[in-house]
Design a protein around this nucleic acid. Structure first.
Lengths: 157, 157
DNA sequence: ACTGAAATCACCAGAAAGGGTGACGCCTCC
DNA sequence: GGAGGCGTCACCCTTTCTGGTGATTTCAGT
């Protein structure tokens, strides 16, 4: 069930822009309302404008941070300093299926085919088939080589 | 000469904050001046405030992006992001000999025992002996696991 | 409804890797 | 000069891995 969980980046950006517009509009309305209250203080316009400027700047700053933040780290506790997200594009370019990538990760973890089979609840033969195809796509002859090549391609950490 | 080339992050942040303050102040002055010109248009205050808000928001956005941008990679072209020097202390702690570490590196490079033997100009049996002892010291059962453990111990890159 | 990709499993033969044991020469350090 | 660490090599046996072929099921797209 790997479906409908990840919105495209452009969609997220669009959402942010819309949110920005909405918040901005709301802020303007609030300002309009506030105006009638603050107008009694004649020469406080500068302060008023300054406050608005500061508020909007803060908003922009927050938005900037949000916009440029990397798309959420995996909740792994021992996450390394370098974030690293698997290169989905490269994976597809090599024609490697998600399942194969999964097996690749376990191979890199130092597990034997039997252990991988047990962990994934499939037969050892299945693991062999997957890894066989995997090596084919990676151009590797041994699992150690597959791991090395995959690392070089940033397919795995 | 590891000096005076890279300012600390907090210093850069301070600089940004100062710049922000200066630009903000200048903007306020400009606004003050502009006020006399625009005051003739009675009810354009909303537009005026909106412009200010938009400008400051944009400024904040830019600042946010600048602030959160990852510090540019070191200018060294071939140098890896993480320098990495093999942990000699750990190697000795585990009782791993230099030769064994050498074999370990080649194993991690994805080479077979035969290839390692050829590259080091020794017999394949020798390589097997070395790797056997190596796995013993690392507590590994497979070469992939040895690589994984060695990486975790920062014995190899 | 047909097609193709993906995942699953099986079987087999050969290659590679791993474990254990023994041995030899070369150092260095007592 | 004897002990011990290190590097080297050999043999044997078991386990694991790799390559090749074939088959079934499920699901998505045509």
């Amino acid at each position: 069930m790997p479906t409908a969980k990840k919105r495209a980046p452009w969609l997220r950006s669009l959402w942010n822009v819309l949110a920005f517009g909405l918040v901005g509009g709301a802020a303007l309305v609030l300002l309009q309302l506030a105006e009638y209250r603050f107008l009694v203080l004649e020469h406080s316009v500068e302060i008023y404008v300054g406050l608005v400027a500061a508020g909007c700047a803060a908003l922009g700053l927050w938005l900037g941070r949000t916009l440029t933040r990397r798309p959420a780290r995996a909740p792994a506790p021992g996450a390394p300093a370098e974030p690293f997200e698997p290169d989905e594009a490269r994976r597809e370019a090599l024609g490697i299926t998600p399942r194969e990538l999964e097996i690749l990760g376990l191979i890199a973890g130092g597990l034997s085919n039997r252990e991988i089979a047990e962990r994934l609840c499939v037969s050892e033969n299945t693991v062999k088939t997957h890894s066989s195809r995997l090596f084919d796509k990676l151009g590797a002859r041994r699992r150690t080589q597959a791991v090395q090549l995959a690392r070089a391609s940033r397919l795995i950490a």
